[in-house]
């Protein structure tokens, strides 16, 4: 088995910003454990196989450095849950992103 525990799932939920309930933790930990167990089959693949991250056939796709119209501020803020002084209003932020 892949050994994904309930605590592991709680940690994943925290990292992913999901305030999951205890009942969900019970349900998800069993399911995620089973799924991870199944998909772990890829572990059989030898390490020397090179990875493929994307299948785009081109390189060096660049945009010219010329300005384009931005959104109107009122349009951008219209969908915000809260706005104030031309800015997006959000709940207090815990701690500085240093």
């Amino acid at each position: 088995m892949s050994d994904i525990t309930r605590d592991d799932v709680a940690h994943l939920a925290r990292l992913a910003r999901l305030a999951v309930s205890d009942a969900e933790l019970d349900m998800f930990s069993g399911q995620i454990d089973a799924i991870v167990d199944t998909v772990s089959r890829v572990g059989e693949i030898p390490d020397d196989v090179p990875p493929t991250a994307q299948v785009v056939p081109q390189t060096n796709v660049l945009r010219p450095d010329t300005t384009e119209p931005s959104l109107r501020r009122d349009v951008a803020l219209a969908e915000a849950p809260a706005a104030e002084e031309g800015r997006f209003r959000v709940p207090r932020i815990l701690g500085e992103e240093l």
């Binding site: 300005t67 384009e68 931005s70 959104l71 501020r73 031309g86």
Partner: peptide, 18 residues
């Protein structure tokens, strides 16, 4: 990654796009 102006000191949220 977008065509918005890279400018210091503009009015808030005037150089933003999708």
């Amino acid at each position: 990654f977008c065509g918005c102006a890279n400018a210091f000191g503009a009015e808030p949220n005037t150089n933003i796009c999708p």
